[in-house]
């Protein structure tokens, strides 16, 4: 079967003024559909950068990235935006909910942006599974960190993305809430065969994945 993610010799260099900052120095990675991959490594080793490139938030400097049949070399900025809209769900460490909207609207806006309209069945199934169906009218500030992150996960998966990209989703949560969020992610992976790439610092969190990738200095050092 065609892998859902296929990355070859991926290089990403940021330019800060006159200095080149190498964030990724040649990454090769193949992920099959339905995998739950944890990415670990010291801070600054390029984990987030890798995730941003896979999600089309930023382009690669060099190398090949092919996701679900989309070759990034052939895609414009607008193409990558469209790709992200239909195939990627993001979850961030800082939850990143829209503060002025209720939990329900935070989830619904993803459906609106995707353009397929509101799907009540999917909406109910996801919110119930994530245990936030009673909190939908609350604004983010009225929710605990764990609840906010579950709303963010619901928003990320509501449009049935091919890949869920999570950047330290438990980084701002206490142990108990972390556990709940990790359970949810595992549940999503099991019930919907959701492909997940999760960055984490936490060895326990990495433990729930079925594959662990270690990075250092912009390279994958073990897989």
């Amino acid at each position: 079967m065609e892998p859902i993610i296929s990355v070859k010799s991926l290089v990403k260099t940021y330019r800060l003024g006159k200095v080149d900052v190498p964030a990724l120095r040649g990454v090769d990675l193949v992920v099959q559909e339905g995998e739950f991959v944890a990415v670990v490594g010291p801070s600054g080793c390029g984990k987030s950068t890798l995730l941003h490139i896979l999600g089309g938030l930023t382009g690669p400097s060099e190398g090949q990235v092919c996701i679900d049949g989309n070759d990034f070399r052939l895609m414009t900025d607008a193409d990558r935006t469209r790709f992200r809209r239909h195939k990627i769900g993001f979850v961030f460490q800082r939850f990143n909910l829209l503060p002025t909207l209720s939990a329900r609207d935070n989830i619904a806006i993803a459906q609106h942006i995707q353009g397929n309209g509101f799907n009540p069945h999917r909406f109910e199934a996801i919110t119930r599974m994530l245990g936030i169906d009673k909190k939908l009218n609350h604004r983010p500030f009225a929710l605990s960190g764990g609840e906010q992150q579950r709303v963010a996960i619901a928003r990320a998966v509501i449009c049935e993305p091919k890949i869920l990209l999570a950047d330290e989703p438990t980084g701002n949560l206490d142990t108990e809430n972390s556990q709940v969020v990790l359970d949810m992610l595992r549940e999503l992976n099991r019930t919907f065969r959701q492909t997940i790439l999760m960055i984490t610092h936490n060895p326990e969190a990495a433990g729930i994945a079925n594959r662990i990738i270690r990075m250092r200095d912009g390279r994958i050092i073990s897989d």
């Binding site: 999600g55 938030l57 607008a78 935006t81 469209r82 992200r84 809209r85 239909h86 990627i88 993001f90 961030f92 990143n96 909910l97 829209l98 503060p99 806006i109 993803a110 942006i113 995707q114 928003r155």
Partner: peptide, 16 residues
């Protein structure tokens, strides 16, 4: 700025 970034991460186009 952050909220605009969130919309973009959700796939919102420039036109949106």
């Amino acid at each position: 700025t952050r909220e605009i970034g969130i919309l973009k991460s959700l796939g919102a186009s420039k036109a949106y």
